[in-house]
């Protein structure tokens, strides 16, 4: 099923907030071979931005196995720290079709408990057509 191009510009509801715990940071860091007691890894905000992407895919009834990640970029206003409560709000910024695949561009604002922006995460998802 193609992705609906009229989604462009639509902001999806914010995710439930994700608490940044020492345990979750340590597990994330260890899973990529890093030490668990260092600074929060720069790609850690994917935990909340991916939750936003999954909410979006579920809302559009897109099967996750048909999705590959096209690109990802994070711009940080400040580093994420243990104790943060992060929420992501995803906006679809583009939908185009190339060679039977739909390319969906998204931008997610990641905010803390006070509502201040911590990081902006932009991602492109490639929805692979029938293989």
């Amino acid at each position: 099923m193609p992705i609906d191009a009229t989604l462009v510009g639509r902001a999806f509801p914010p995710t439930t907030s994700v608490p940044v715990t020492a345990e979750s940071v340590a597990a994330f860091a260890a899973s990529v071979g890093g030490r668990g007691d260092g600074p929060v890894p720069p790609t850690y905000p994917i935990v909340v931005s991916f939750a936003a992407l999954q909410d979006f895919l579920a809302a559009e009834r897109v099967e996750l196995s048909r999705i590959v990640h096209g690109d990802q970029r994070f711009r940080y206003v400040r580093p994420v720290v243990v104790g943060d409560e992060l929420t992501a709000t995803l906006t679809v910024t583009g939908v185009r079709s190339i060679g039977g695949n739909d390319i969906v561009s998204t931008s997610s604002e990641i905010t803390d408990a006070s509502g201040a922006v911590v990081c902006t995460a932009t991602a492109t998802l490639v929805h692979r057509g029938g293989a």
């Binding site: 990529v32 071979g33 890093g34 260092g38 600074p39 890894p41 720069p42 790609t43 590959v68 990640h69 096209g70 690109d71 990802q72 970029r73 994070f74 711009r75 940080y76 580093p79 932009t122 492109t124």
Partner: peptide, 20 residues
């Protein structure tokens, strides 16, 4: 991110991204 941390003595990362 790990490589950048190693090279920069864990400097604050302000932007990080790539295409896959």
């Amino acid at each position: 991110g790990r490589a950048v941390a190693a090279w920069t003595a864990e400097a604050e990362v302000v932007e990080l991204g790539a295409k896959f």
